[in-house]
Design a protein around this nucleic acid. Structure first.
Lengths: 259, 259
DNA sequence: TTTTATCGGTTCATATGTTGAACCATTGGT
DNA sequence: ACCAATGGTTCAACATATGAACCGATAAAA
């Protein structure tokens, strides 16, 4: 990986649950040298991507990211239109909902919305979604560009005992996703979470991302699953419309049959 | 500059007015080699900071910046970033400084900082700022959303004998604020206080709040006013940056002229 | 008080990763 | 058919990133 790539990677360690990170800790997280990491952080700081809490000397994300996000959202407005759809989906299902976008061969988190119906909820605090272990990832593999399968090949990290770990099982899961129109994972990424996802399409007519419902696994009955499916179909249509695309007729027909 | 720094710099060429840039054009903008720039772009793409429009082959900002912005927004509240700026402003002017944010049609107090220079100080103990009677309020009216004027109409409470009480006088004050770039109130909210305020802008490019200096009225000479103006301009830039925005060029030009 | 173990940050010889002129392949206009 | 753009790639030369060892400070433990 290039020096620039390593530098950028440091940013991915910042999250809502870990907003400030010290030099030593970041070295451990990134498994890198202290001197190197420090230089990388300085480059990031100079560009405004991180800033230092002068009291604790810890680093946190800087203001530059806000400007870039603004430009991105104006250029490719997806988050804003996703938000309202996720809200509706969360209200209808009573579970946490989520939208992700595919960029290159990575599925990035875009936005999520928690339902207030239950006191136990799924909290999504994740930047990138493993293709083989999440419902959104399966949608990407099933409906996205073909070269995505290369990106997962021989890289099937095990998260739980239900995670897909063989190329063969993955191929079958992708096939099922294509046949049903739903990405479906049962406790495959986190032990307590079962998810259902649908693909979203943009103005090029291609797969652009996914909408998903992440259910507390013990609540995921067949009744709930059916309810999620019904509303996910609506969400896919709504999001695709918001992103300038439409759901392919073929897929719409598959969904229509399943209900 | 480090390789990582150069890579990060590329991101700064993307803007609302230039959301998509091709390789050659970016080379010209950054005055860099084509091979190098291409490698840098690949590093950025891998990390999701840019993505390629597959039709035009041009590059645009990627989804990763949205997540970082979200994390930053959640974890770095505006108050924290305002505090240090207010401290600097208070030290430079020797008077009490204050930051406020606009939410809906109300100007809320965000944070304040007292200077230790004088033993008589202005103590700001206020949750909401009357739009027509405070310097921060005038900034909101002058630079904020247009519907704010409705919120004050027919609601011009009198605080002192200098308070603006007629719609006509208010319109003139707002006009003056727009023309000078400074909200200015002399003993209009409290008998002993004169204030000067500047607008602050956020990542949406809109008015987000104000920074102000509240001076003990008897100390508010033209020399002090000039000093306050000078440092308020810096504060506006600093706060806007911390909140992910920038001061509009037009306003910056007005300030530049007045000095 | 000394010892130990953190922390953030810096130095410098080593060698690794970066650089850019020259190259190719496509596209679109004349 | 030609020219001038575009995006993208190659490889020798060399600039720049690297990391073990270091420093000073702080804080808890002996």
């Amino acid at each position: 990986m290039s020096s620039a790539g390593k530098t950028l990677q440091l940013l991915s360690y910042f999250s809502t649950s870990k907003p400030e990170i010290g030099l030593s800790e970041l070295c451990r997280l990134a498994k890198r040298d202290k001197a190197t990491t420090h230089r990388h952080l300085q480059a990031l700081e100079e560009a405004g991507f991180v800033e230092q809490n002068l009291e604790t000397r810890q680093y946190r994300l800087g203001p530059a990211v806000l400007q870039l996000a603004q430009t991105r959202e104006i250029t490719v407005p997806r988050k804003a239109s996703a938000q309202s759809v996720l809200k509706i989906l969360a209200d209808a299902t009573g579970e946490t909902t989520h939208a992700s976008v595919l960029s290159g061969s990575t599925v990035f988190s875009l936005a999520s919305c928690e339902s207030t119906k239950h006191s136990t909820r799924v909290i999504i605090d994740l930047n990138q979604f493993p293709l083989h272990a999440t419902a959104s990832g399966l949608c990407a593999l099933a409906f996205g560009p073909k070269n995505l399968t290369d990106a997962v090949a021989g890289n099937l990290e095990t998260f739980t005992e239900h995670t897909i770990t063989t190329q063969d099982a993955l191929t079958r899961a992708i096939q099922t996703t294509r046949e049903t129109g739903f990405g479906r994972t049962i406790r495959s990424f986190e032990e307590e979470v079962s998810s259902l996802a649908v693909p979203v399409f943009d103005s090029t007519g291609n797969f652009a991302g996914s909408a998903s419902v992440a259910c507390v696994a013990t609540r995921f009955t067949s009744e709930l699953e059916e309810k999620c499916q019904k509303h996910l179909i609506d969400a896919s249509h709504a999001l695709s419309k918001g992103w300038g695309g439409v759901v392919p007729d073929q897929l719409a027909a598959i969904w229509a049959q399943s209900l």
